[in-house]
Amino acid sequence: MKNSQVNVTKEIADDNYFYLRSCIRQNFFPGAENVFLDILKNKLGKNIIDNANHTSCTGIGYHSDIVPYETYQTMVARQFALMTEHGFRNAAVSCITSYGGYHEVLETWKEFPEEEAKARKNLKNATGRCFEIPENISHSCDIIYRFRHDIAELAKYKLINKQTGKPLRIVDHIGCHYAKIFPDKGVGGAEKNTVLSAVVEAWGGESVDYPERRHCCGFGFRHYLVKNNRSYSISNSKKKFESMEPYCPDMIVTNCPGCNMFLDKWQYALAKIEGKTYSGDKNGIPVLSSEELAALVLGYNPWDIGLQMHQVDVEPLLEKIGFDYNPDEKYLDANGNFMGKPEFIGCLD
């Protein structure tokens, strides 16, 4: 059996996490990171630290090749040093690119100890810092997976269509760097990943398979970063939407901040280009991260967690769940004042 087909059960730390944020998630879905911290601290009673001194791991620069591997290793070493200084050995990672990157660096150091020595020297010379190798590196989706049954017990809502009584039909998209680089680091491995489908089922939904489930969202790093190249990115997302369409999903759940953003925004862009959606309505298929989905079943106010920042409107999904929310609060600022609203929400007029 190939390693990618092994039914992986990975170790996921159960407490005392050092949180490492994601550049993309902070930009586009900052509420998802905030609510993840809140769920862990205030719903699950876990200890997780949000440290102001960590920076980008520079993974997007690394995979678009402007950041050399030696620099990337040293940047990762700096994150580990901050963890060490705070007495933490378990990383909780928000970003999938970082998650793959941290594991890549650790694997390199196992195989080539001289690389670790070089990273230690670079870090010491540049910052005076030292680090210990983390005991556990988990992605936020791993932690949600680990506590999915606890969350189900605390849940106010199930992923069930309130009108029909049937489970919501949910397709998942796993960010490539979660399990493709190191299949043993992802729950279920690369081919039969279950980290999101198990969560969906634990909360009452139906996990729906589709042929291109494993296909990349199309970020492609340099292919999205350079405007001329973005057709690569949108073409790959289109392939996924075409593959999902016959299964009529109620929503898409993702574990990767970038994928979440692309699957949300490219539906809009494709609608503008093609004049069609893949949802059977004009809105498009709502795309939520595992953090946002956990927050919804726990009954968080959707506007506190930032769901008004999605291009594809989430309100039809809230209606299906029978979620008790106030649409009039969607565009109110922190003081309750109207802050204007987008000219257009969803995909098609």
């Binding site: 509420g31 609510v35 862009a269 506007w303 920042m309």
Partner: peptide, 19 residues
């Protein structure tokens, strides 16, 4: 899209609203 344009034009208020 338009939602990002709205966020971009109202960065301070939107980011503060979502914590």
């Amino acid at each position: 899209g338009d939602v990002w344009k709205w966020i971009y034009d109202n960065k301070e208020a939107v980011y503060e609203r979502v914590g």
